[in-house]
């Protein structure tokens, strides 16, 4: 009775578990890795490991550094800048050959690659302008993703930006004087609030922003 279903599973397994000289063909090991990496439980980061990595990065590298925390996976990663394109900076994990990356504009995450459920691109200019000027106002925030069909879809949110209190924030080893800016955003199927800490010269030193329906909020801190 249940044969037909097992057929599909069996056939899929058989078709995949090939071995060949073509690096592009999947072998059985990769298949197993593929299936498990999709469903793997990502371990939350150990704060001590993160702290060590941070100290090491600060001491042994030059150039921009940032810290990323993903709420859903409870992971924290030290990022170093690997490329710039105009106002956009692309970051990758410090001290790791892990091929994942993240792009920011003015301290706001505009794209991710290799994280799964990637943010493909964003239009953040309106929100960014209000935040860096520490002004109240409204602006559109557009975030784009690939759907299951490999077609781009957009989440277009209307955001109300409100200037909040001034505060001192510890970022990395420094204490910064910042203004809290809040963006309350409403999209057709989603509602979220982003919080940005802006320094006196208009730099976003920390952004707690909604990344995607899958990840929810991410926190990115500019360390250097």
């Amino acid at each position: 009775m249940f044969r037909k279903t097992s057929i599909i599973a069996l056939l899929a397994a058989l078709a995949l578990s090939a071995c060949s000289n073509n690096k592009s063909d999947l072998d059985s090991l990769e298949l197993v890795k593929g299936i498990f990496s999709q469903q793997r439980k990502i371990q939350p980061s150990d704060p001590q490991v993160v702290a060590r990595s941070l100290t090491k990065a600060m001491a042994n590298s030059e150039g921009p550094l940032a810290l990323l925390h993903l709420k859903r996976t409870q992971t924290t990663t030290v990022l170093r800048e690997i490329e710039t394109n105009g106002a956009y900076r692309t970051w990758a994990a410090y001290g790791s050959s892990d091929r994942r990356s993240l792009t920011t504009k003015g301290g706001i995450i505009t794209a991710t690659r290799g994280l799964g459920f990637d943010l493909m691109s964003s239009d953040v200019n309106g929100v960014l302008a209000l935040i860096t000027r520490r002004q109240n106002g409204t602006a559109k925030l557009v975030q784009r993703y690939l759907n299951g069909e490999n077609i781009i879809y957009e989440i277009v949110a209307d955001c109300t930006v409100i200037r909040g209190p001034e505060q001192t924030t510890k970022v990395g080893n420094q204490t910064r004087h910042t203004t809290e800016m809040t963006a309350r955003c409403i999209a057709p199927d989603h509602e979220f609030t982003n919080t940005y800490l802006v320094s006196g010269n208009g730099q976003i030193v920390q952004a707690q922003q909604w990344l995607s329906p899958y990840y929810g909020h991410a926190l990115i801190q500019r360390l250097r």
Binding site: E83, R100, G148, E149
Partner: peptide, 25 residues
């Protein structure tokens, strides 16, 4: 028993493959 799939709902939309290289400007 019913087993259903929807081609529109991939287990990992957008894929989990490694990041591309950034453009060198």
């Amino acid at each position: 028993v019913t087993i259903a799939f929807n081609p529109k709902n991939a287990p990992s939309p957008g894929g989990i493959e490694e990041a591309p290289l950034p453009v060198g400007v």
